Simulated assay, not measured.
Amino acid sequence: MESLEEMKVRHRKEEKDLQSRVLQKKKQATKKTRKGVNTECEDLERQLKERQDQERAALTGEAVPETEDIPDIDDSIEESATSHTNGVNGVTEALEKSTISEPAASEDGQPRKRNRAKERLARRAAEQEAAVEEAKKEAANQPDKKTVERTKMLAQFKENGLVEKGIRPDGHCLFSAVADQLSQVGIPLGGESDTEIKEDQRYKVVRKAAARYIEGHPDDFVAWLEEPLAQYVEKIRDTAEWGGHLELLALAKTYNVEICVLQDGIAQTIEPDAKGSKEPEKIWLAYYRHNFGLGEHYNSLRKAP
């Protein structure tokens, strides 16, 4: 049978091992997981203390002591008041007053021991629920980004005498919108006759034109790429990779057009920098950040009738 001294030695080793585990867990915790890790470590320390107290009491014949490491309800209320919003406090205090009462008597007339761990979990659940409700209220008070963006865009359309032609949000929208604009100003897309190309396939010609220009002018684009030029060109030419400023620049130079992009903010103009005798045509695009489910999107803007 284990002696008291041997038990003390074992207990000290268990405490030392647990401290090492706790330290390791806290080091690995992130900002998001830190609260949960701290709670887990507290529970491990409490469980070890309770077991060691029971083993010590069994060996010495003493009564098993009450666990004191879980804070009283009054202490928790005070701590909660300093670390949570009024909304969280209200829910927490209401829960404590309505569901946490003095322990009822058991069948033999002795008071039941309070389940402090269960009480603490109930308080934490109430606090989390209240925090979620507060977040929902804050979100509801934020302006609707879609509505704000749409309102500003419509004002710019009216100011410039433009109407919007919707483009399918399929990853090809920039190239489809440019193809529609080129057809409006009478600029051929290139290759075969435009009349022989189905409308929903014209983006492919524009994609190839942008890819071809980027590939032929690497010094103008390599500094802005995060991947090899050949790999980037292949994606623009052969996949549904979204187009952006680099592709607009390539298309402005390829077709000698001035591309005006209306957006929620200052309008953007991409010029061809061509010094030819012919004045560049102006084409118009609408750029959205919030109004389409896939994210960023371009529509074509035509002159109002």
Rank of each mutant, 00 (worst) to 15 (best):
M1R: 06
K16Q: 08
Q19C: 09
Q19P: 00
S20D: 11
K26R: 14
A29P: 12
T30I: 06
T30W: 14
K32L: 09
T33I: 06
C41D: 02
K49W: 01
R56Q: 11
A57E: 00
L59I: 05
E62K: 15
V64R: 08
P65K: 13
D69E: 08
I70G: 01
P71A: 14
D72Y: 04
I73L: 05
I73W: 02
D74W: 05
D74Y: 07
D74G: 10
S76N: 13
S76P: 06
A81V: 06
A81R: 11
H84N: 09
T85L: 15
V88Q: 08
T92G: 01
E93C: 00
A94S: 07
L95S: 00
K97F: 01
K97P: 02
I100S: 02
I100G: 04
P103K: 00
E107R: 10
G109Y: 14
G109L: 13
R114I: 00
R114M: 05
E127T: 04
E127N: 12
A130K: 15
E133C: 08
E134C: 05
A135I: 04
K136H: 04
K137W: 12
Q142N: 11
K146H: 15
T147H: 12
E149P: 02
E149Q: 01
R150M: 15
T151V: 08
T151D: 09
K152C: 04
K152F: 09
M153D: 06
A155Y: 14
Q156P: 04
N160M: 11
N160S: 05
L162Q: 02
E164T: 03
I167R: 10
R168Y: 10
R168Q: 13
P169C: 11
H172W: 07
C173W: 01
F175Y: 13
V178L: 14
D180Q: 12
S183L: 11
Q184D: 14
Q184P: 15
I187S: 05
L189S: 00
S193K: 11
D194A: 00
T195E: 13
Q201C: 05
K204A: 14
K204T: 15
K204Y: 11
V205Y: 12
R207D: 02
R207M: 01
A211V: 04
R212H: 10
E215P: 03
E215I: 06
P218Q: 05
V222E: 13
L225V: 14
E226M: 03
P228Y: 00
Y232G: 06
V233M: 05
K235A: 08
K235L: 10
T239F: 09
E241C: 08
G243E: 02
A250F: 07
N256W: 14
E258G: 02
G265F: 03
T269W: 01
I270W: 10
K275R: 14
G276Y: 09
S277H: 06
S277D: 14
K278N: 12
E279P: 08
E279T: 10
P280R: 00
K282Y: 03
W284Y: 09
Y287R: 15
Y288C: 04
H290R: 07
H290F: 12
G293W: 02
G295D: 05
H297Q: 03
L301P: 08
L301T: 00
